[in-house]
């Protein structure tokens, strides 16, 4: 059973539709105890970092998510859901993250002169060897919408990079936890392939 974390901050329906189209049987998990039966967990997210973290806390989801991750079952964070995996996000008033992958979530530098949000189709260069990338080309195009990016503390956790004025980390991963900055549920065939691979992943890497 694939759980989609429902904390009031996601395009939950788009993720649900994509999983449904893949023949999966997803369910929405709004409370910590609903993660017990999950074989896989997806944290979607569209919105502001500090408000989203406050919401996770208000719903007592911090510890259940940490407990889920300790069990070795696979977790996929999408967009804001990926950023929440880090230690700290500076968006809004700033907030501590879930601390599952070391790193900070910072805005794009003003000096880049590029439009923010970074919104549209762009290429992720994927590092080879991750089971969730199976069947995807090294250069794969996905749909992005975000104003902040994950600055990884450890290079080994960078599984994909994307060029937007500078190379930024568009995929992070550590053991059974994976995060993608782009929206696989909005990225047509390659996005669906990534989600399908995730649903088949045993969390080992």
């Amino acid at each position: 059973m694939i759980a989609i974390l429902d904390y009031g901050f996601g395009n939950v329906k788009s993720v649900w539709n994509a999983l449904d189209a893949l023949g999966e049987d997803p369910y929405l998990a709004a409370e910590g105890k609903e993660l017990d039966q999950a074989t896989h967990l997806i944290i979607p997210g569209v919105g502001s970092y500090d408000v989203a973290m406050a919401e996770l806390q208000a719903r007592d989801l911090f510890e259940p998510v940490a407990c889920y991750v300790r069990s070795g079952r696979p977790l996929l964070g999408i967009c804001l859901g990926m950023q929440l995996l880090g230690d700290y996000g500076e968006e809004g008033k700033g907030a501590r993250g879930l601390g599952l992958i070391p790193g900070q979530i910072l805005s794009f530098p003003d000096s880049s002169g590029l439009d923010v949000p970074h919104a549209g189709w762009n290429t992720a260069r994927l590092r080879s060897g991750h089971p969730v990338f199976s069947g995807l080309p090294e250069h794969s195009d996905f749909y992005f919408v975000h104003s902040y990016r994950f600055v990884c503390a450890e290079p080994e956790h960078v599984w994909g990079t994307t060029d937007y004025g500078e190379d930024f980390c568009s995929v992070v991963g550590s053991q059974n936890v994976l995060g993608v900055q782009f929206h696989p549920e909005k990225s047509q065939k390659k996005g669906l392939r990534l989600l399908e691979n995730f649903c088949e992943w045993d969390g080992k890497c």
Partner: peptide, 8 residues
């Protein structure tokens, strides 16, 4: 449409 099209 969002049930069959996974794009913006």
């Amino acid at each position: 449409v969002s049930e069959v099209c996974f794009m913006p």
